[in-house]
Design a protein around this nucleic acid. Sequence first.
DNA 1: CGTCTCTTTGAGTCGTCTCAATCGGCGTGG
DNA 2: CCACGCCGATTGAGACGACTCAAAGAGACG
Lengths: 248, 248
Amino acid sequence: MHPPVLEGNLAQPVIRRLNAMRQLSERGIALLQQAIQDGLHRARPGEDLATEGDPVDSVRIILSGWLCRYKTLADGRRQIVNFVLPGDSCDACVYLLSVMDHSIGALTPVTYADIKRPVFEQLLASDRSLEEALWCETMVSSAIQREWTVNIGRRVALERVAHLLCELYERLLPVGMIDGDSCLFPITQMDLADATGLSVVHVNRTLQELRGSGLIVLRDRILTINDLKQLKDTALFSADYLHTKRHG
Amino acid sequence: MHPPVLEGNLAQPVIRRLNAMRQLSERGIALLQQAIQDGLHRARPGEDLATEGDPVDSVRIILSGWLCRYKTLADGRRQIVNFVLPGDSCDACVYLLSVMDHSIGALTPVTYADIKRPVFEQLLASDRSLEEALWCETMVSSAIQREWTVNIGRRVALERVAHLLCELYERLLPVGMIDGDSCLFPITQMDLADATGLSVVHVNRTLQELRGSGLIVLRDRILTINDLKQLKDTALFSADYLHTKRHG
DNA sequence: CGTCTCTTTGAGTCGTCTCAATCGGCGTGG
DNA sequence: CCACGCCGATTGAGACGACTCAAAGAGACG
């Protein structure tokens, strides 16, 4: 049903992402690709891949599209706690906890592999490099979560939005989704607001400020970063927390 | 140098904490206790167990005392991203990342076990229940981190401080550090401010408000929660994210 | 008894929010 | 092909939550 050559392409972001954490063995890559091919799924924008309170029984690996993890308060306030990008895994290990404590929603059309728990465990057990890479990715995800806490807790609006843009840029880079200094940026200002803990109105004004100082262009779902260095400076951004090993 | 019977007591919070995640085997407990005895250390208040940028080569398990994980911005702003309580581990797996992306500071006198990476890996490899419990604990720590993002991003000051108090109460409970409706609460209002993303002055006024409505008493480093239910209500608190299995 | 840290209080400022309305693009149905 | 409705982006204006600055209590400690 899916020609193998196409699947190979689909798995590219995952392999690139994991390779950046730990050099994957040939065998590991093959096993991973097989597992991905066997579990292909799609989701539409707005659809939830998982909802707070759901039992967890499988791991999802994102092949294309953007998602977000979010939590909702009783009165409707929503906080996006992280974005999930191509190559990321959803809850590589959260299945150790039996219930989801947050929801995962698709922001765009999404392609992902759904790998059932036993299959996933076998995958981890059969290749050491794969196991380490996937744990590593989970740890990086925690590190990102910590930085978000800092971002929302201690940065002012301008810094905060700038920081988020820097992070997304740096995360999209290793999976090959940056074209020059531009990338697709499929999220609304409302999403941005829920991710930064700001109001939509203020996000709008903050973006205008960033545009006004010539740092970025954001139009028609395309983000262009004109001056990455200065954007990082205004964001007080350091990429260390992403633990991206630079290698050849 | 340390009588075995005393060490057994020291390890109690850890064992209780891990047992709440996964039922530990007798063997697992014995191995753990041995590792803890072999790696006992102390730290003074204000001392850093680890600093952002440090290489990671060991895992720490907290036996007594309070610590915090924190990050500092270039201009001195500080954000506490989590508290570390007795029974918690520091970076059970962060050693998969070679460098610390945050610091860990002692808020009180601390007793902890420092377990070197090879010893720790052997520990995980030799008992399945121990391995699962420790991973589980790491996952819960991530879940807490997500909730902090929500707390700081979407709750107002009163809710935010109340939520933190509820969380600490619920986390201290399973390790036996709650006495009736009171507990030692050794952190300053400045720490509270850095943890909630508020200013010290505002934390002070918020605490007064909580006191004024009779929900809590906080004096001389002792916190008493007079009305837990109402405190949880004002905090919009649900303990689900702590993944604490209730079991007889 | 002086010093240091933590807590508390007062007063004024400012960042961010809320409410409200307009504008623009896009898909759908008449 | 046009009108309507919807969603997202934008703008204006006023309100308020939280911040900063400043200074004064209050314990703890040597």
